[in-house]
Design a protein around this nucleic acid. Sequence first.
RNA 1: GCGUACGUGGUAGAGCGGCAAAUACACCAGACUGUAAAUCUGGCGCCUUCGGGCUUCGCAGGUUCGAGUCCUGCCGUGCGCA
Length: 381
Amino acid sequence: MTGPALQFDLFRQDGQARLGRVTTRHGAFDTPAFMPVGTQGTIKGMLPDHIAATGSQIILGNTYHLMLRPGEQTVAALGDLHRFMAWPGPILTDSGGFQVFSLADINRIGDDGVTFKSHIDGATVHLTPERSMAVQNALGADIIMAFDECPPGTAPIEYQQKALERTLRWAKVSVDSHARSNDQSLFGIVQGGTSEKLRAFCAEELIKLDLPGYAVGGLAVGEGFEAMKAVLSFTTPILPVGKPRYLMGVGFPRDIVAGVARGIDMFDCVMPTRNGRNAYAFTANGAIRLRNAQYSRDTGPLEDGCDCYSCRTFTRGAIRHFFSADEMLGPILVSVHNVRFYQRLMTDIRQAIAENQFDEFQRTDPRCGLGPTERTKVVNG
RNA sequence: GCGUACGUGGUAGAGCGGCAAAUACACCAGACUGUAAAUCUGGCGCCUUCGGGCUUCGCAGGUUCGAGUCCUGCCGUGCGCA
């Protein structure tokens, strides 16, 4: 056990890539794992059955959003977040720390916490590590995150250092105010921008807290792909081998593969669901944008060979029509496909590691190159 | 037949004489990385070396430095009266 409520079994390693399994009070998930994001207590557009059918084993919820609405006490009164989301498997809640960064225009960051204006009703909200822990304890997710600050990748190093100092202070407060360590596992978050020195310092300080798992935060926030890989290359080797490592908020298939290659075990990203809602379908040959006129009479599935419900059932042309007509089935079907696409990628990554073929996989699988500007390859003109 | 109102870009619909012409929709394309996103951005007469150039508001004339906007006639449509 890496903690009272978490077990991490590391089965094998292929280079830096790791094959393992994390077991929580609500079940286990295989690593490397991809976790779909359900910010407001729902993975937008997907029924729990859909989510399970994609092969997802653990999902996310968000402290900031659920705290504001419906309020963590309401979720607790309805059972807990598992019951609320109708998801009996493992759940991870983010601490609200990311909102410190992404809602930066409406907040004030102090040493004890952050002051927001609620995006719902404008009320002033004070979020501190204590409050984040209280909310996450009430929600009852299996893995909870320390309250951190996630500055933009372009922030100057002086600011990165300040943010990191706050993050470390808040991590200690988080540990001290975590009231359910027997059934919820608190992960720390390594910050420090692109500075090796700051990252190493942050990681070492967090390791002293002997947490059940560690996350790398503050990546994929504008620093660039090469910088992200560099940060991972010097950060993950510092982290304890026997504990799961989580790269927060990442990312494109390309980014996930690069993370696995550098020893990351867990990923989450809104991309498959958000892009799915916006008519962007992932395929091994690149993205297809279903609103494009070229698909209006396309009789094929979203992706050839995909086993998801959408691909087994609907043509591209029909799905394009659903988007044109503003029918909800469009976003639903592409979200289902995209999450399945991500989970197939994870399954294949795990298999490659199991067979000691991860290098080969990285070199030859076209999905490993799918990043921000990938386009559909035009076949036959 | 007489009277009257009206004819604007794919559609609907603005437009005190100085506009390639509001706005919306439609259409075309793009973005999206711990979700204030089923959202947002750009394009949408033609051409362009992206500076600009050219042609437009039913048709034909006219007034004016200048007309989608004013005048005359014609064509078409709605309404009223016969």
